[in-house]
C-alpha cells in the first residue's frame, strides 16, 4: 500500500483557517459607488432604522455576523492557513506530489481533453461534494467508477488548491509582481519551498498539456490563466479599486508560466 495515511484535505468544512493576517473586507473602503449611489445607501440605512425595530435589527446583525463567519471559514484564497501540502499522502511516483492532485490531473488528462471549458465551467455541486467525500476516504480512488463529470473533478482540484496552503506564499506576491514587470519571474520561483515548487511545476506542466489541445476545448493558455490565476496566485483584494488595478499582471504571470513551462520548470530555453 503506497498511501496509508488518509489525506487530510477537504471538505471545506473541516478546514480551519488559523492565521489572522487576513484583511477583512471593508465596505467603506471602496470608491466604486457613484455619488448618488452612496447617498442612496445612506438613505437606505436611515429608513432601515426607522422601520425595523431595534430587536429585529440586532437579530439581523447577528445572523449576518454568523453568515460572515461561516462564509469566511469556507471562503477561499485569503488565508495562509489551510491544509499543508506536506501533510498530504504522497504519490508513489513522486514523493513531492500529493496523491490527490495526481489522481485528479491524470483523470482530467484522460477524460477532459474534449470537454469545452475545462477548468472554466464548474462541476455539478452534488458530484463535487460526493467526490470530496470519496477523496477523504481514499486519495487514490478510481474516479471512473463513480461516473463523475470531468468538470466536477476540475472543480474539486481547484477548490483544494484554493484552500490548502497557497502554492505561492503571500510573502512572495509583491516580489513576483515586481519581477513580472521586468520579465524575471524565475528568480522568485526559486525562492519557493521545494515541495511547493514541485507541485507548481507539476500543475503548470499539466496546464501546458491542456492548453495544447485548445482546439478541442477552447481553453488556450490565456483562458486557463484567467480562470486559474486566483487559484495559483491567491491575492486577497480588500476593495474593488485594488482588484481593478491588481488583475492585470497576475493572469499574465500565470499565462507566461504555462506558455514557458519548459523554461521555468524544466531548464529549457525560453520559446
Amino acid at each position: 500500500m503506497g498511501c496509508t495515511a488518509s489525506v487530510q484535505v477537504l471538505p471545506y468544512s473541516t478546514i480551519k483557517k488559523t492565521n489572522s493576517n487576513q484583511q477583512p473586507v471593508n465596505p467603506d473602503d471602496n470608491n466604486l459607488q457613484q455619488e448618488n449611489q452612496q447617498s442612496k445607501d445612506n438613505n437606505v440605512n436611515e429608513s432601515k432604522d426607522n422601520k425595523v425595530t431595534e430587536q429585529e435589527r440586532r437579530q439581523r446583525e447577528q445572523q449576518k455576523q454568523q453568515k460572515k463567519t461561516t462564509k469566511k471559514s469556507r471562503s477561499s484564497g485569503t488565508s495562509e492557513g489551510g491544509i499543508r501540502l506536506a501533510e498530504c499522502s504522497m504519490s508513489s511516483n513522486n514523493p513531492s506530489l500529493p496523491q490527490f492532485i495526481e489522481t485528479c490531473v491524470e483523470y482530467i488528462e484522460a477524460e477532459g481533453m474534449n470537454t469545452e471549458g475545462i477548468y472554466r465551467i464548474p462541476g455539478n455541486k452534488a458530484q463535487v461534494d460526493l467526490l470530496q467525500n470519496k477523496f477523504q476516504e481514499d486519495p487514490n480512488l478510481d474516479i471512473l467508477s463513480l461516473e463523475i463529470q470531468v468538470n466536477a473533478v476540475a472543480t474539486v482540484l481547484k477548490t483544494f488548491l484554493k484552500e490548502s496552503e497557497p502554492l505561492i506564499p503571500f510573502s512572495l506576491h509583491d516580489e513576483l509582481l515586481e519581477a513580472a514587470e521586468k520579465k524575471n519571474e524565475e528568480g522568485v520561483l526559486q525562492k519557493l519551498h521545494p515541495l511547493n515548487w514541485e507541485v507548481l511545476k507539476y500543475f503548470i506542466t499539466h496546464l501546458n498539456r491542456v492548453s495544447k489541445q485548445k482546439e478541442n476545448h477552447n481553453m488556450d493558455s490565456r483562458n486557463l490563466a484567467l480562470c486559474l490565476w486566483p487559484t495559483i496566485i491567491r491575492i486577497d483584494f480588500s476593495s474593488y479599486d485594488k482588484m481593478a488595478q491588481g488583475t492585470r499582471i497576475p493572469p499574465e504571470i500565470v499565462q507566461t508560466l504555462i506558455d514557458q513551462y519548459g523554461f521555468f520548470f524544466h531548464g529549457e530555453n525560453e520559446v
Binding site: 473586507v25 465596505p27 471602496n30 485569503t78 480562470c227 476593495s239 474593488y240
Partner: peptide, 8 residues
C-alpha cells in the same frame, strides 16, 4: 473567483 469582493 472574487468571492471576497461581493459587497463592493
Amino acid at each position: 473567483r472574487f468571492a471576497s469582493l461581493g459587497v463592493a
